[in-house]
Amino acid sequence: MNALLDPFRFGFMLEAFAMGALLGAVAAVLSCFLVLRGWSLMGDAVSHAVLPGIVLASMSGLPLAVGAFVSGLFCAVASGWIKAHTRLKEDTAMGVAFTGLFALGLVLMSKHVSDLHLDHVLFGNILGIPRPQLIEATVLSVLVLAAVLMLRRDLLLVAFDPAQARALGRPVAALNYTLLTLLSLSIVTSMQLVGLLLVIAMLITPGATAFLLARRFDEMLLKAVLSAVGSALVGIYVSFFLNGSPAACIVLVQALVFVGALLFAPGKGLLRRA
């Protein structure tokens, strides 16, 4: 019986629970907007595109987060520009931009000898977070969360009906860039802890799950956050016993919750239609 409480006996585990829940909540709120805008690929794109920024920052001694943020945002803006000025669709523009930047990052990395390991970037490490990083991640997460929640009505309006937003004189382009900036910040923050491959999932799955379960937007936000926080806690807890990657366990639980919603969502679930 006592063995089941073991994960709560270690400081690093408690920190992991707290950070997992916080990062999960931030990503979940963003994922609602990404899913509704048809921008699910954007998380994928930006999180790959940060790589050259990280390498360049590490070469020049700047904070990695700054480099990551700049190159992630560059990718998002460049895709938007290509889409607006050519006949290409947005997903194509994004695909070209982010794979190009990721490849650039790989090439730079091979030229640059440092303590930067691809493994760390890809998978992160949520167990044993250095204190300064813990504080930085907490502050950034709280800021992003507060900003998104405060702007949620305008962001929703722009997602639902950009024409109406313009008719009311809302700054549509500025709101889009704000959302992209917040997305990049969230990715940069989460990446060092859960790794870029799993940030992508955290930026899609909770929103997708909540979309299946909600009829109103605020309800969707709430359900996305609940599913993300729950998945983080359960995932990290399970990983302790499996001795597996905590981030992978979080995402796996999120995926299972999604499957549950798919099958059992009231009224809409595949098994409820019959």
Partner: peptide, 24 residues
């Protein structure tokens, strides 16, 4: 707008949409 320009799967209610007219 023309009906085709609206995403009808959006999780917003009739009341929510009409309220969007008041955001200005």
């Amino acid at each position: 707008p023309q009906a085709e320009e609206v995403d009808w799967t959006f999780p917003v209610s009739v009341h929510d949409v009409v309220m969007m007219g008041r955001y200005g």
